[in-house]
C-alpha cells in the first residue's frame, strides 16, 4: 500500500544547492540590517532576499556559518547579530542581569534575616486565620490525615 502511495504521490521539489533550509539556518541567526528586530530568515523585504542569496552563494563557495556571520558583521555592523558580541562595553549586557539578581537575593536574604530575628519575639497566627472557611477546611483535612 505504502509502495503504491509512494508511486502515486508526486515527486519532491528539486532543491537548489545549498537548500533554502541550509540558508535559513544561518539567516535565522542574523537580524535584518534595515528592518527593526526582524530575523533575516523571515524578513520579507527585497533587500533581505538578496542577503539570503548572498548567504547561499557564500555557502556554495564553502564558507562556514561563522565566516558568513562575520562577513555580515563586517558589512553592516554588530547589529546584525542576535546578541551583541561580548567585548568592550557590551560585557555589561551579560554581567548586569546576574549581578542585579545576586543583589536582589542578597537584599532579600538580609531583609528576611532581620525580620526573622524580630519575628522570634512574637508569635504569629498560623494558617489563614482571617478566613474561617479555609481554616475549617484545613482543620478538617488535618483531622483526616
Amino acid at each position: 500500500m505504502i509502495l503504491i502511495l509512494l508511486l502515486v504521490l508526486p515527486a519532491t521539489a528539486q532543491e537548489p544547492t545549498p537548500s533554502d533550509d541550509e540558508v535559513n539556518a544561518i539567516a535565522k541567526q542574523l537580524y535584518c540590517p534595515v528592518c527593526e528586530n526582524t530575523p533575516l530568515d523571515v524578513c520579507p523585504t527585497k533587500a533581505c532576499a538578496q542577503w539570503r542569496e548572498t548567504i547561499r552563494l557564500k555557502l556554495a563557495d564553502g564558507w562556514s556559518a561563522e565566516e558568513i556571520k562575520q562577513y555580515f558583521v563586517e558589512q553592516y555592523g554588530d547589529r546584525v547579530l542576535a546578541t551583541p558580541p561580548a567585548r568592550g562595553l557590551n560585557w555589561i549586557v551579560y554581567i548586569f542581569p546576574p549581578l542585579a539578581l545576586a543583589l536582589g537575593v542578597y537584599l532579600l536574604a538580609r531583609t528576611m534575616r532581620s525580620w526573622s530575628s524580630e519575628g522570634e519575639m512574637q508569635d504569629v497566627p498560623s494558617v489563614d486565620a482571617d478566613d474561617p472557611y479555609i481554616a475549617r477546611i484545613e482543620e478538617e483535612l488535618r483531622k483526616r490525615t
Partner: peptide, 14 residues
Amino acid sequence: SELITGTKLTIGEP
C-alpha cells in the same frame, strides 16, 4: 550603546 559608542545593537531572542 547607541548614545555612548554610536553603535546600534540588537538584543534578540537568545
